[in-house]
Design a protein around this nucleic acid. Structure first.
Lengths: 194, 194
DNA sequence: GAATACCTACCGACTAGTAGGGAGAATGTC
DNA sequence: GACATTCTCCCTACTAGTCGGTAGGTATTC
C-alpha cells in the first residue's frame, strides 16, 4: 500500500533540510534532484512549481506541529511542563543538528520576497503557534501554576519571539548550548512564586 | 572632498535594503545596478565580488552600531534608559519601514550557506551586541536600577534573542505594533522592584 | 487503455564575474 | 604653463554556469 519512503516524501525531507540551511532562494531543484537521486524534471512531476513544493512543506510543518500539540495535551496536564516539552523538542533538534531551525521561522524572515502562496501559509503557522501558547499560558494562569505579568497573548508572543531568537543565536554562535541557556530561564520566570 | 552621496555608498545602501528584504541569495548585482542607475560591471569596480559587498555591509552595520552605543553611553546615564533607547531605535525603523529588520540577524539565519568571510563578520556583530547588553545589565544591576534573575550574560542573550524574535514576529504578522508589544514588557520586567 | 512515475533534452532568463576600452581628473616632469 | 602618464570610474560586450520550468517519450501498474 504505502511505502515507508516515497519519492515525494524524500523530496520534501530533502527540500526541508536545504531550506533550513539557506532559505527559499538558497536551494534549487537541481540540488534536491542530486541528493534524492532522481532527475530535476521528476521533481516537477510531484511538485509542479517551487511554490507548490515549499507551500506543501510549510503546511506539513504546521500539521505536524498541531499533531504534536495535541499529543502534549493528552499526555501532559501541567501547563508549564507542556511548554517545557515544546522547548525540549527544539533543544533536541538543535543539539543533534537534525533540524537546527524552524523552517517557518526561517522562511518568515524572507517574507517580503516570498511568493504570496507561501507567505499566507506562514502567517497561518505563526497564528496557530501563538494561539496554542496563549491557551497554555491562560490555562496555567487560571490554575495558579503560571504567574503572568501581562496578558496571556502578550506573554505568548514574547515566549515565541524568544524561542525563535534563541534558535538564531545558537546558529550565529555556532553553539547549540546557547538555545537552552536562553530558554531555560524563560520557563523558570513563568513559575508561580513559592 | 567627500561627496554627500558617492556611488559606492549608493550601492551599499541599496544592497542593504535588498538583503533586508530577502537575504544573501535574494538579491543580485543586476538588481542593485538597476536601482542605483549604473551598469552591473561598475558594481564590480567598487566591490569585486558579492562577498566583498556583503562583508562591507556587515562591517559597516557593526561600526555604526558601536558608534550608536558610544553615543548612548555619553548621553544617557540610566542603564534601563539605554536599553529603552536601543529598543526605540528598532521600533522606529520597523514602524516607518525604513529598516524593518537587522541585516545581521537576517544574514545569520542563513549562516550555513554564507561564504566564510561574511560568517566571521556576523559572529563579531553578535558578540559585540551581546557584550554591550551584558555590560549595561551588569552596570544597572550593580547600581540597583535593574533587577536580574540570572547572570548578566544570560539576561543579555535572552534580551537579544527576544528583540530579534520580535522583529521576526512583526514581519510574519505584517504588523509593526507587534515589536513594541513584545519588547515593552521586556524592559519593565527588568525594573528594580518598588 | 488510462494513469502514474520517471526519463532525456531542451528553453529563455538570470547568475556572478571578466576583458578591455573610453572619458576625465589627478599627478609628475620638464 | 605645457605635456605626458597614471589612476578612477564607468561603460559595452561577453563568458560559463545555473535557474525554474516544459515538451515529449518510455516503462510499469491499475
Amino acid at each position: 500500500m504505502s511505502n515507508l519512503s516515497t519519492t515525494s516524501d524524500n523530496i520534501l525531507t530533502c527540500a526541508r533540510s536545504l531550506i533550513i540551511a539557506g532559505g527559499y532562494n538558497g536551494f534549487s531543484y537541481a540540488d534536491v534532484a542530486t541528493i534524492v537521486g532522481i532527475r530535476k524534471a521528476s521533481i516537477h512531476h510531484h511538485f509542479p512549481s517551487k511554490v507548490d513544493l515549499v507551500k506543501a512543506l510549510v503546511v506539513r510543518h504546521r500539521e505536524e506541529t498541531e499533531a504534536g500539540f495535541a499529543d502534549l495535551e493528552h499526555n501532559i496536564s501541567n501547563p508549564q511542563e507542556r511548554l517545557r516539552a515544546y522547548i525540549r523538542y527544539w533543544e533536541t533538534c538543535i543539539a543533534d543538528a537534525s533540524t537546527p531551525f524552524c523552517i517557518c521561522a526561517l522562511l518568515a524572515s524572507e517574507l517580503p520576497v516570498l511568493p504570496q502562496g507561501v507567505a499566507i501559509e506562514l502567517q497561518r503557522y505563526f497564528r496557530m503557534l501563538s494561539a496554542w501558547l496563549t491557551s497554555v499560558l491562560e490555562d496555567g494562569s487560571q490554575r495558579g501554576r503560571i504567574r503572568l505579568m501581562n496578558t496571556p497573548r502578550m506573554e505568548a508572543e514574547a515566549f515565541m519571539a524568544t524561542v525563535h531568537g534563541a534558535m538564531l543565536s545558537a546558529r550565529a554562535y555556532g553553539d547549540p548550548k546557547v538555545f537552552p541557556l536562553i530558554t531555560e530561564p524563560l520557563l523558570s520566570k513563568l513559575s508561580a512564586p513559592n
